[in-house]
Computed example of a mutant assay.
Amino acid sequence: MRNKIICLLFFAGLIIAFIGACQPNLSIETAQYAVNGQKLYLAHCQNCHGSKGEGLGQLYPALTDTSFLTKQRSSLACIVKNGLEGPIEIHGKIFDGSMPGIPQLTSVEIAYILTYVTTTFGNSTETYTQEEVQKSLESCKK
Rank of each mutant, 00 (worst) to 15 (best):
N3E: 15
I5A: 13
I6F: 08
C7A: 13
F10W: 14
F10Y: 15
F11L: 12
F11A: 09
A12W: 12
A12P: 02
I15E: 13
G20P: 01
C22R: 13
N25M: 02
L26G: 10
L26V: 08
S27M: 02
I28G: 01
I28Y: 11
I28A: 13
E29M: 12
T30Q: 04
A31N: 02
A31Y: 05
N36Q: 11
N36W: 04
N36M: 10
G37S: 12
K39D: 09
L40E: 15
A43Q: 14
A43R: 12
H44C: 01
H44Y: 14
H44M: 00
C45M: 09
H49W: 15
H49G: 04
G50V: 02
G50W: 06
G50R: 09
G53S: 05
G55T: 11
L56E: 14
Q58D: 04
P61C: 11
A62V: 02
A62E: 10
A62D: 09
A62Q: 12
L63A: 11
T66C: 04
T66N: 08
F68I: 11
F68R: 14
L69E: 01
K71L: 12
K71V: 12
R73T: 10
L76H: 09
I79P: 00
I79C: 03
G83E: 06
G83P: 07
L84S: 10
E85M: 02
G86R: 08
P87G: 08
E89F: 11
G92C: 09
G92W: 00
I94A: 10
I94H: 05
I94L: 13
D96K: 09
P100E: 09
P100M: 05
P100R: 09
P100N: 11
I102K: 14
T106K: 10
S107M: 06
S107R: 08
V108K: 15
E109F: 06
I110K: 04
Y112C: 14
Y112Q: 15
T115R: 13
T118A: 01
T119W: 06
T120Y: 14
F121V: 04
F121L: 05
N123T: 07
N123H: 01
N123F: 00
E126N: 08
Y128N: 07
Y128P: 01
E131I: 04
E132V: 01
S136Y: 05
S139R: 01
